[in-house]
Design a protein around this nucleic acid. Sequence first.
DNA 1: AATGAATGAGCATTCATTCAT
DNA 2: TATGAATGAATGCTCATTCAT
Lengths: 206, 206, 206, 206
Amino acid sequence: MDRRLTARGQQRRRQLMDEAARRFAANGYDQTSVAEIVDGLGVGKGVFYWYFASKDELMGDILRDAQLDLRRAQNAAIRDEPDPVRRIALGIRASIAWLSAHRELFTLFESAALDERFRPILRNNQDVAVADVVRHLEEAVRAGLIADADPIVVAHAILGVTNQLARAFVLTRGDDWEAVAEGAIAFCLGGLAGATPAHDRRVLVG
Amino acid sequence: MDRRLTARGQQRRRQLMDEAARRFAANGYDQTSVAEIVDGLGVGKGVFYWYFASKDELMGDILRDAQLDLRRAQNAAIRDEPDPVRRIALGIRASIAWLSAHRELFTLFESAALDERFRPILRNNQDVAVADVVRHLEEAVRAGLIADADPIVVAHAILGVTNQLARAFVLTRGDDWEAVAEGAIAFCLGGLAGATPAHDRRVLVG
Amino acid sequence: MDRRLTARGQQRRRQLMDEAARRFAANGYDQTSVAEIVDGLGVGKGVFYWYFASKDELMGDILRDAQLDLRRAQNAAIRDEPDPVRRIALGIRASIAWLSAHRELFTLFESAALDERFRPILRNNQDVAVADVVRHLEEAVRAGLIADADPIVVAHAILGVTNQLARAFVLTRGDDWEAVAEGAIAFCLGGLAGATPAHDRRVLVG
Amino acid sequence: MDRRLTARGQQRRRQLMDEAARRFAANGYDQTSVAEIVDGLGVGKGVFYWYFASKDELMGDILRDAQLDLRRAQNAAIRDEPDPVRRIALGIRASIAWLSAHRELFTLFESAALDERFRPILRNNQDVAVADVVRHLEEAVRAGLIADADPIVVAHAILGVTNQLARAFVLTRGDDWEAVAEGAIAFCLGGLAGATPAHDRRVLVG
DNA sequence: AATGAATGAGCATTCATTCAT
DNA sequence: TATGAATGAATGCTCATTCAT
């Protein structure tokens, strides 16, 4: 589906993606019909297939777009921060902020991760995210800032905390994302022991 | 659907639930047809509706059964352990062991949690799990064993670590569950700082 | 689509094939919808897909069935006839008789022969038919009964005459098939010259 | 759709008809979408409906054009030939030559002849062709050149041979059309007996 | 308890045609 | 003349559920 789109066309395409993302998140991909999406926009069914080759392709486009945006937000937040531990904390903050601002995309990520058809699209991205955190962790270990543990395991643990807290508090209860981010960062740094790594406490961002 | 079932009937019902759980986990609930399930067992379609009122009800039964079993495993592991921090660690171990032994049910939990139709069934259970951990946490705080932080947040963080590591290493890569459990427990206790709570290190089970 | 069918099932399947063949012949394959076929029989749409995996598969089954039947009729007509020229004449007669009795299948053959999707199914059969005639021709040449010409070309010419006369007179005008068969045989034997091959004239069957 | 067309317009119209004929022949009329045709030419969909009122009308125009051209070729080949049998032979030659030069139109004729929507357009023409051959035949019979048989039947037989050989050898196998024409003429003149009509053999053209 | 058969609403997708620019 | 956009009826096919036996 490679069409020369006018400005109006671009806009329509966006509308369709947004409407679809909203509904996919609310009711699930399979439970949402193309008819529902176009009806929600008050356009004919043909419009959909003018912009997307299939429902699957639309989903793929939504996911790829969203991943790119999330990644951009994370990188922007981390840029220029020399301290690797603070970089991790800033990444957690940025992630929760983004997930809070794009709740339906968060939901979409989670269900796509469980779906044979879409997992491949996400997998690569998840791997990149883990690799990023791993890099920070290794730097921090070398600098003696944190304990020496398998960085891949730790990276997954951090992602697990971040996602679960975002899901439980931001998504489900609508809590203030900054407080949630504080909690996530604190737990990741000190665990149950509540200790902070071996440098000053400025690491707690914000 | 409350039938007096013969022994053979009970067995048939089990077969159907197992076959369905396997397929739901592999291909998704919506992507799995009733026809597929009964064909997989080599029986007619009538059999299905003899034992279950609907596909949704079958899913509900599978989920409830599985939750009950997981909960039993967790309680059995914790029973008699006086130290609240060790209870948490034992709970993490038991959870990862169970998820490793019932991978398809783990997958099922995750997708059901995202599905309007089944979330209610899980929600209650998730809440109970959180409440359990919260109880251990509060006791541990009172005993001065761990730092004082919002126990609900911490409980969710622990669940997040546990599930994410189980998913990433046990489900996806098929790693040895005991090593994964060690990693999860270590991270939960000490975070990046790697400190262990203010009592002896025997807390690391196994 | 390999189902164990009861007697009633077999009957339904037949009904569907007959109804479909009639409509395909009348309006064309693409112009005939599955809905039309099942409505014509007063059954639900699901019935169709209980018996056939797809509309294409149904068409294939119809064609294969028909070819088998035509071939049987031809072979039955030829059996026991020692004279190769008479065998050809008998084959022409049998073909025109069959086409007259199954006009809608005749039409179906012709359109399938032009359709990428179904040509493969027919091609093989057409080749077999040509090969059969070729065999008779070669025997007749060896016996000095007919002139020596490229048998493959002649075989095609005979098929061309047979089909065209059947189409023009039996299908379109509804003429008596026996008279048409006489005309076809006469032309094939003698062409415009009107000569009959070098043996007695009993070759003109019937 | 009767537009005053500029030179460029005429050209566009031709382009569309050629592209469409090619695709209709290759994939079938119903299987070919208007979108496919205009995309193949790299123009917008509006162009199509500027030149043709509908897809059906386009097909009609293609068929009428082609028939006219074939008829012209046949007449040009026959003109000035006084011998009626030779006229028939020349007609066969001219037809096979033309069909060989316009294979996609040949295919189109055959499928249109089976289609309710287009048969009327062809029928008239086929009747004219038969009537032409009938006239030659009657003249030949009066002149004592050929045997006396129902001329309408014979005319159809001749068309059957011509089309079938053209289809089998020129279309399908790509054989040299002149050899195929020889075979067709020989069979039409002498049938299996191989006799040539009661005048000199110069009748075999070429 | 179990089977083969049937139902029919629902779905993704196609496509001839029209329209605004 | 030409384009991108839009329409909406129609199509092949699926599937949860029901029914007769």
